[in-house]
Write a protein that binds this DNA or RNA. Structure first.
Lengths: 140, 140
DNA sequence: TTTAAATAATACTTAATAAGTAATGATTAA
DNA sequence: TTAATCATTACTTATTAAGTATTATTTAAA
C-alpha cells in the first residue's frame, strides 16, 4: 500500500547533498560525478537537484572544465527547512489547507484548526535542525 | 505545484463522517444518502469509506431497509489516530523509513534519526486528539 | 584556437497513485 | 414480493514521482 510521505526522493537527496558539501574543506569544490558516486545517486538526477540548490543560493558553482560545486552558506546557519524550501518544498497536511480550497464545513471545523497547528509544529522542528548537525563524512 | 500531504481525501472524509456520527442521539442510525448530503460528499464515496470504518469496528451498521450506520465506540475514547488507522493509514515521512528500504548511508545517518523522532511526535499528537472534541453539529 | 570536461536548462518517459465511478449481490422491513 | 438499504469488488482517469535524455554553454589547458 502507498504510504503518505512528507518528503520525496528529491527532498531527501537534496539534504544528503547539502550535508556532504558541508564536509568539504574551505575552497574545495566537487563535481557532480563525484557527488553522485559518493552518495549512490544517479549523476543526472544529482545534477538536477544541485542545480536547484544553486539557483536558491544554497550552493555556489564554478563552470567549465574542473568546475564544480561548493556550499555557499555556513552549515550552522542553514536549516533542513532552508534546503527543503530551496527545492520548492510545499506541504499541506491536508487538501483543505490549500488556499483555493472551499469546504462547506470549514467555518468552525476544528479539524482544520488542528491541522494548522500540527503543520506549524512540524515546520518549527524543521527550522530548528541545522545542517551542521548532519554533516556526512566519508573516508577519502 | 503538487504539495506533499500527510492526509488524503479519504482520511479527511473519514474524520468528518466519524465526527458527524458522534453528534447523533443514542440509538439513532443514519443512512449513507443522508450522511453524504450533510457532508457534501458523493454517496458512493461515502459508502466506501464508511464501510471501512465498519470493518474496523469504529461504526456499526444495520442492514436492509431502514438500515444505516451509527458510531460504535464512545467518541471520547476514539482518537484521530484510531480513525485514520481504520482507513489503513500508513505514513512514512520519508521513503528511507520503509522497512525494506536499503540505503548505503543509513548507518549513522542523522537525518534518518531525526525523521523517526519527528514521525513519533506527529503520531503522538494524532493520538491525543479525541473525536469528542471535533463533533460536527448541524441544525436539523 | 581547439578540445575536453564540466555545468545549465529543459523536455521527455513510465509506472504508480488518488480520487472517484460503476455494477452487482445480499439483507431486511413492510 | 418488493423497495430500500448496506456489502463488495472492479474499473477509470488525471496527476505525480522519479528518473532519463538531450542540447547548449562555459572554461582550463594543450
Amino acid at each position: 500500500m502507498k504510504k503518505n510521505s512528507l518528503f520525496n526522493r528529491e527532498h531527501d537527496y537534496s539534504l544528503r547533498i547539502t550535508a556532504f558539501l558541508a564536509s568539504l574543506d574551505k575552497d574545495e569544490i566537487i563535481n557532480v560525478s563525484s557527488i553522485s558516486k559518493k552518495l549512490h545517486l544517479s549523476k543526472i538526477f544529482t545534477a538536477r537537484i544541485i542545480h536547484k540548490l544553486r539557483v536558491a543560493n544554497i550552493v555556489g558553482s564554478v563552470q567549465g572544465k574542473y568546475g564544480g560545486f561548493y556550499l555557499k552558506a555556513n552549515s550552522e546557519e542553514i536549516s533542513i527547512w532552508d534546503v527543503l524550501n530551496a527545492m520548492g518544498y510545499k506541504v499541506r497536511l491536508n487538501d483543505c489547507m490549500d488556499e483555493n480550497f472551499f469546504c462547506d464545513l470549514m467555518f468552525g471545523c476544528q479539524f482544520h484548526t488542528f491541522f494548522i497547528g500540527l503543520e506549524q509544529n512540524i515546520f518549527e522542528q524543521l527550522k530548528q535542525q541545522k545542517i551542521s548537525d548532519y554533516i556526512f563524512r566519508f573516508t577519502k
